[in-house]
Computed example of a mutant assay.
Amino acid sequence: MTIMRIAAAAASSCLAFSVNAATQQELQDALVGNTFQGDMGGGGYSSYFGENGTYHDASTSGRYEITDDGVCYPDTEFGCYQATIDGTLLEWMKDGESAGTGEILEGDALDLMPD
């Protein structure tokens, strides 16, 4: 009986994670045309997600795609990140673990788009 309870609890926690993970549409609605500002990889990080599929941060830019796998960075070693979104708060997830947290700011709030 105990094994069944453990299995049920594990299935329940997996279900809770998948319910909390943002869908492709939720990621698009939250990020495209807006800026993420927060902490990622142990340091401060900000990035504007342009409507043309290009991201811009303080030192670089590149392509991004929002897919069923999350926010993906093709042609880089970054791969894909999933996210949970609560209002304007976003937590990046990589391989089931937190990779950073921050806030979604409206538009190009930090003027990261090149002129």
Results as ranks from 00 to 15, higher is better:
residue 3 I to A: 15
residue 4 M to K: 15
residue 5 R to Y: 12
residue 5 R to I: 13
residue 5 R to L: 15
residue 7 A to H: 05
residue 8 A to G: 09
residue 9 A to P: 04
residue 9 A to V: 14
residue 9 A to K: 11
residue 10 A to Y: 08
residue 11 A to C: 08
residue 12 S to G: 15
residue 12 S to I: 07
residue 13 S to E: 14
residue 15 L to F: 13
residue 16 A to H: 06
residue 16 A to Q: 09
residue 16 A to T: 14
residue 19 V to K: 12
residue 19 V to W: 08
residue 22 A to W: 07
residue 25 Q to N: 13
residue 26 E to P: 03
residue 27 L to A: 08
residue 27 L to K: 03
residue 28 Q to H: 10
residue 30 A to L: 09
residue 32 V to L: 08
residue 32 V to D: 09
residue 33 G to P: 07
residue 35 T to V: 05
residue 38 G to H: 03
residue 39 D to C: 02
residue 40 M to C: 10
residue 40 M to K: 10
residue 42 G to A: 05
residue 43 G to E: 13
residue 44 G to D: 15
residue 44 G to V: 03
residue 47 S to K: 07
residue 47 S to A: 15
residue 47 S to I: 01
residue 47 S to F: 00
residue 48 Y to C: 05
residue 49 F to M: 09
residue 49 F to K: 01
residue 49 F to Q: 00
residue 53 G to N: 09
residue 54 T to H: 07
residue 58 A to G: 06
residue 59 S to L: 10
residue 60 T to Y: 12
residue 61 S to E: 11
residue 61 S to G: 06
residue 62 G to N: 01
residue 63 R to I: 01
residue 64 Y to D: 01
residue 65 E to N: 05
residue 65 E to G: 02
residue 66 I to M: 05
residue 70 G to F: 01
residue 70 G to Y: 02
residue 70 G to C: 07
residue 70 G to H: 00
residue 72 C to E: 01
residue 74 P to W: 03
residue 74 P to D: 04
residue 75 D to E: 15
residue 76 T to W: 04
residue 77 E to L: 11
residue 79 G to F: 06
residue 80 C to W: 00
residue 80 C to K: 00
residue 81 Y to N: 08
residue 83 A to M: 07
residue 86 D to C: 04
residue 87 G to E: 06
residue 89 L to M: 13
residue 89 L to H: 15
residue 90 L to S: 06
residue 93 M to Y: 12
residue 93 M to E: 12
residue 96 G to N: 09
residue 97 E to I: 10
residue 97 E to L: 15
residue 101 T to M: 11
residue 101 T to A: 13
residue 104 I to K: 10
residue 104 I to L: 13
residue 105 L to G: 06
residue 107 G to D: 08
residue 108 D to I: 08
residue 110 L to K: 11
residue 112 L to A: 05
residue 112 L to M: 05
residue 114 P to H: 08
